[in-house]
Computed example of a mutant assay.
Amino acid sequence: MKDLGVLKYFLGVEVARSPDGIFLSQHKYTLDITSETGLLGSKPASFPIEKNHSLALAKEAEFADPEQDRRLVGRLISLAFTRLDLAYTVHILAQFMQGPRQEHWDAALRVVRYLKGTTGQGILLASVFYLSLTGWCDSDWASCRLTRRSLTGWIVFLGGSPISWKTKKQKTVSRSSAEAEYRSMAALTTKLKWLKMLLLDLGVLHYAPMTLFCYSQSVLHITQNPVFHLSRLIDIMFVMLFKMVV
């Protein structure tokens, strides 16, 4: 083993230290992606993906070189390690890697044009630190046009530094936006409890209460009123009885 000094570059992640904290970015990796796709001279895009896109219902011909699309999406997945703004877009593009169509390739190139104008972005692990886990969650009800399943998105901060984030399609179909929001909150709660146990295993005692933010008023009323939980339990029991009879 060798002492290589202060960490500056590791697995494509650039590490910059300052009095404000540690800044993690993938500037060189981003430039490599832009250069490989031949978009160094293209006009930057303002957003990584179009609003109200219909990539799930793409009908154009299959992309001529699917391996090229898979390679690009795979590199974007690695880039999302330090780019929170790519979590949703990468989640969408990764669903069509087995049989990409021309629309999917065009959407991936749009992400590269977005990266061209934001090559220096990353995450800052602030030096001003306080041990307090805070989570924010949201959901997009029935966003998948093929399965009508909702989308869960959350991010967790330790102090003022982002340490975990995720965008994922829910496993079951939610019958209302409130139910989708509740599932999102439940997923974030599980993650917060896991992170608290992880800190304990690392010898860090987390005494402060964990804070969870959700803007849905209906979900907040459900969590605070046990009557709603009782009615939900009754619904589940009726469904189980019906299955047993059938």
Rank of each mutant, 00 (worst) to 15 (best):
H53G: 09
L199Q: 00
T30K: 01
S174W: 02
M240C: 07
K8Q: 12
S25F: 06
L220F: 00
L212I: 12
V245M: 03
I123W: 01
L133M: 07
A61L: 04
G135P: 01
A126N: 09
G41H: 14
V111G: 07
D235N: 07
S127C: 03
E181T: 11
V219P: 06
V111R: 08
F129D: 10
V156D: 04
T152H: 09
G120D: 13
L109W: 04
M197R: 15
Q68I: 00
K168D: 05
K169I: 11
E181L: 04
D3E: 07
G153L: 00
T152V: 02
R83I: 07
G5S: 11
R232K: 11
E36R: 05
L84Y: 05
S78I: 02
L212T: 07
Y9R: 02
K8C: 12
S139E: 09
L146A: 15
R175M: 09
I234A: 05
R113D: 06
G135A: 10
K243M: 00
G160S: 03
L4T: 06
I33P: 03
S54R: 13
L241F: 09
M197N: 09
A61I: 00
Q26W: 06
R175E: 08
V246F: 12
T34I: 15
K243V: 02
I33R: 06
R71I: 00
K191M: 09
E50R: 06
F242M: 12
S18T: 10
L79C: 07
S139F: 06
S150E: 02
S150I: 08
D69R: 02
L230A: 14
H91F: 05
M210H: 00
C214I: 07
T152N: 11
S177H: 11
F63R: 07
H206P: 00
N225Y: 05
T118A: 06
L79P: 11
L131S: 15
R70S: 00
A186E: 03
W141T: 04
L195Y: 14
R113H: 10
G122E: 05
V246C: 08
L72Q: 04
G160W: 01
E50D: 15
L233D: 14
K2T: 12
D32S: 08
Q98I: 14
S42N: 10
Y29G: 12
V111L: 08
M237T: 06
F228G: 01
R110E: 15
L93F: 12
S143D: 13
Q68R: 13
Y207K: 15
T89F: 03
H27K: 15
Q224T: 03
Q95S: 02
E50I: 10
A45H: 14
V227F: 09
L220G: 03
I92R: 03
T211Y: 14
L31C: 05
G21N: 08
M244A: 13
L133Y: 10
L192A: 11
R83P: 05
Y9M: 00
F47N: 13
P66S: 11
A186H: 02
V6T: 12
K196Q: 12
R183C: 07
S216C: 13
P226Q: 01
H27S: 15
L212V: 03
R110A: 09
L195D: 08
